[in-house]
Amino acid sequence: MRQSYLKNVVTLNLNSDKCIGCGRCLEVCPHDVFVLESGKAELRDREACMECGACARNCSEEAVTVRAGVGCAYAIAIGMLRGTEPHCGE
């Protein structure tokens, strides 16, 4: 059963001009967001993105951008209280 989250919030973007079609983004994506079409990566299901940042981190051409982070209310709340980035505590 595919579970989906809020719509129209995802910050993922793909610049096809920079893409060399290596397929790394397909390999690392846990939600099958990308597909390889005639030698270039394309966004198959952008809304499924959870912004983990694996694709952007592993793109040698910097063709993929995303505001990566953890979708964790607890960490975000601690970040708000401390005035920092999301943080798990400790």
């Binding site: 809020l6 995802v10 959870m50 912004e51 953890v70 979708g71 964790c72 209310a73 975000i76």
Partner: peptide, 17 residues
């Protein structure tokens, strides 16, 4: 529980909160 789930994005959780 968003933090334990496998499909919530940072942007989504910030909006929700």
């Amino acid at each position: 529980f968003t933090g334990a789930s496998t499909f919530t994005s940072l942007s989504g959780v910030v909006k929700e909160m």
